[in-house]
Design a binder for these strands. Structure first.
Lengths: 136, 136
DNA sequence: TTAGTTGCAAAGGCTTTGCACGCGC
DNA sequence: GCGCGTGCAAAGCCTTTGCAACTAA
């Protein structure tokens, strides 16, 4: 699981310097950057990279299932490269910090078939909210 | 729980024709409108109502805890007046339809204290995703 | 070679803001 | 009458798009 770049190469993702930098910026755990933050970090290594290119790359990584979009209540979406480690998020209601957490139990099992209204349910997204130690 | 307007009056919410119409539009179950949809429906009864006023009113209803913001992955936030009936959402990945559902079990209990990292967790938000009968 | 990628700049969707006027309490 | 609410128009933030130049495979 650990190396995003390697996985992308194996999957035959066309590699360019811009795409490599984006993947490198995202690689790791507990990473939840906005598109703009990804662009800023990428631009440290590749000053000419454009926002549009970052958005393109992020969109593809999401389609490939290598990265997940996290829409916190704030405005900009955040991108989470931890797609191969099923996990949920714990968000501080005050400062917005996000932590990855790994609850016990399977939330999917909590939705009985009579509550599924004929839907074929395939995913669950769980977000815990509260105050982090610094904000409490 | 049923009448939003009544609750607002009891809480001393300053009432104007615009605010009344917004509250009336939102009142009910399984309502998940965007700000723009709220504006459109409100404008049927009060043609001069402005978007800014609708946004103001929605923002206050959210602060008051009478309405919940639902950010599906799409662009515009949706507003759910069902804040007094704890429930989760079942979203169709294809057409975006939202249904309210009432799972068994308490998701809060699934997050053990060693996974809370010192946060005081107060809410959980659960979204089930899948295909609805029409889109399957 | 050639299809896919990039950068730019402009457009687009959703939401917020500043300010003068108007209205609920 | 006072203070908050309203409408308008403009600005703002985040994201997408069109297109010509470029480049990985």
């Amino acid at each position: 699981m650990s190396d995003l770049l390697e996985r992308l190469r194996e999957r035959g993702w066309r590699m360019t310097s811009q795409r490599r930098v984006v993947a490198e910026v995202l690689n790791g755990d507990h990473v939840h950057l906005t598109a703009d933050e990804v662009h800023a970090r990428a631009a440290q290594r590749l000053p000419e990279i454009s926002r549009a290119t970052v958005y393109n790359a992020l969109g593809e990584l999401v389609s490939l299932g290598e990265v997940t979009e996290v829409s916190t209540d704030g405005r900009a979406k955040r991108y989470d490269p931890n797609a191969h480690h099923p996990h949920q998020h714990l968000v501080c209601s005050h400062c917005g910090t996000i932590r990855d957490v790994h609850p016990t139990g399977n939330p999917l099992a909590d939705l009985p078939s009579e509550e599924r209204f004929g839907f074929s349910v395939s995913e669950v997204e769980v977000t815990y909210r509260g105050l982090c130690p610094s904000c409490a």
